[in-house]
Amino acid sequence: MADAREVDRPRKGAVHAVSATDAPLLAVDALSVHYGRAAKAAVDDVSFTISRGDRVGLVGESGSGKSTLASAILRILPPAATVKSGRIELDGENLLALKPAALRSIRSTRIARVPQDPLGSLNPVFTIGRQLSDVVSAHRKLSRRERTTLVEEALRQVGIGDAAVKRRSYPHELSGGMRQRVMIAMALLNHPDLLIADEPTTALDVTVQAQVIELLRERVENSAMTLLVISHDVGVISELCTKVMVMYGGRIVEQGSAADVLTRPTHPYTRSLLDAARGKVTTYSPEVVA
């Protein structure tokens, strides 16, 4: 892999908007987020960039700050959290300075998110078709028929065949895997530049998890979308991503290409994380299967 490993690379004053092609899509610079009056930062002076077309995995254990980081990018931090310093730039535009209206126009059309818990993210009293349709009409003026066509098309793209029937279902009528497909369809409806998947498969069974991973990979490859996957599961990251960032104690301790980080980790934490994830029974390691 060509790109060199960056271990805790200091990034002061991120360069942006040099030209449309080599400027990063997302640049996070010296970002720190605190909860309440806590002295310890949940996200501690984190800097990284994501280029167009990258598939980046952010891996870490609970409490490492990975979800806080994702929430900061989407500006959906809980009230107790405050951004102490830093910048988050999407195509050179500082997201932290945006007014609510401007933020609304960016969400879903430029940055979309697939949540961990689809049931908690869907409204139980509306059909999924209605909820998908709302996502379209928030950003585009279309007739009802045009919206229905879009919604059915989106459902078909995520492998829900009988879209005309399924769009009339309520969230509780669908299985966990189906609901997660609906969330992916919803995230992709307005063709975002950046898709943030926060633990997209954690709530799913293994065989369904495999279906969702395949689906995400296929959708991202077909649409030249940029992907940021957040997971505690190194396996999921390894399956989906070309680049990996490892977070520990609010900091990114190691980042680089997936091939480098996962096969030749340099940071001791990454090494122990990989050892733990692989289990210590060597006979059941991937090389026996492949």
Partner: peptide, 25 residues
């Protein structure tokens, strides 16, 4: 199939892993 669909960590020499993705639930 259960075993083949388990997410696996990239390792040296395992670029392509055959997997059987079951349809449906």
């Amino acid at each position: 199939a259960l075993r083949s669909t388990e997410p696996r960590i990239l390792d040296e020499g395992t670029e392509h892993v055959e997997r059987i993705v079951l349809t449906g639930e």
